[in-house]
């Protein structure tokens, strides 16, 4: 049965396979896809209730509100990223794959991002109008959330990999990840603020893009190491 002439799986095939597997598992439970959107929707409505309905004040704070809520939504979702893989033993098998664990884990993180952060960014204009964000700032908001959510998901994945073997690790995940989210929040919300004032949002988006590239390059290394450590602790 095990003829050795057959070509073994290439890295690309394994990468796509892992991406598809996580995507299908995520798509199979629509709750996981809807939860972040509903969370975003509900928490955004809290701000006018807390700060008062005055549209002038709300629209002035809109970029900050939208970005903080997007960050919290990403945080809430990051906890579940590797949880199911850890429980059903897929993580163990991932360590045995021929290809580096960091790359395969990156495939899972990207699939997870598509299902959560990406959708959030596309739907965010609806929430933006609720808090009175000027129309001309909407494109920058969507771009900043697209870039930002990828960065937040990658950093959140590092936290998730570190805390996956701890039983009630959710709170701990927030504690160790929020400080790392600060630059993303600053660059993202400032870009949208500049867009509302017709300032140069592009330079802030460029900084955000730089963070995304850095995270794409470095986060997988930390994720791979953290997953192996969590397995030893499990």
């Amino acid at each position: 049965m095990s003829a050795s002439d057959q070509p073994s799986l290439s890295l690309g095939a394994s990468f796509f396979r892992q991406f598809l597997r996580h995507g299908k598992a995520l798509a199979a439970s629509p709750a996981d896809l809807l939860n972040p959107l509903l969370f975003f929707f509900m928490v955004v409505t809290l701000f006018p209730l807390g700060l008062g309905p005055d549209p002038e004040r709300l629209s002035q704070m809109a970029p900050g509100i939208l970005w903080v809520v997007a960050l919290l939504a990403s945080l809430m979702v990051s906890g579940k990223l590797f949880a199911s893989d850890f429980e059903d033993g897929s993580l163990e098998q991932l360590c045995l794959a021929q290809h580096p664990l960091a790359i395969l884990a990156l495939a899972e993180v990207l699939a997870h991002w598509l299902g959560t952060g990406f959708l959030l960014a596309l739907v965010s204009p609806v929430f933006a109008l609720m808090v009175g964000l000027p129309i001309q700032a909407l494109p920058v908001l969507v771009i900043s959330l697209l870039l930002g959510s990828l960065c937040l998901t990658l950093i959140g994945a590092v936290g998730s990999a570190l805390t996956v073997s701890i039983r009630r690790g959710g709170l701990l995940l927030s504690l160790i990840i929020i400080p790392l989210h600060v630059p993303v929040l600053i660059f993202g919300s400032t870009a949208v603020v500049e867009a509302t004032r017709d300032g140069n949002a592009v330079s802030w988006l460029a900084l955000l893009a730089a963070l995304v590239l850095a995270s794409l390059a470095l986060a997988p290394l930390a994720i791979g190491a953290a997953l192996r450590i969590s397995l030893d602790n499990g």
Partner: peptide
Amino acid sequence: AYENKAAAAKACAVL
């Protein structure tokens, strides 16, 4: 948070 303190040290090193 880690029970296995050897793993805890490695996790904190990564963090």
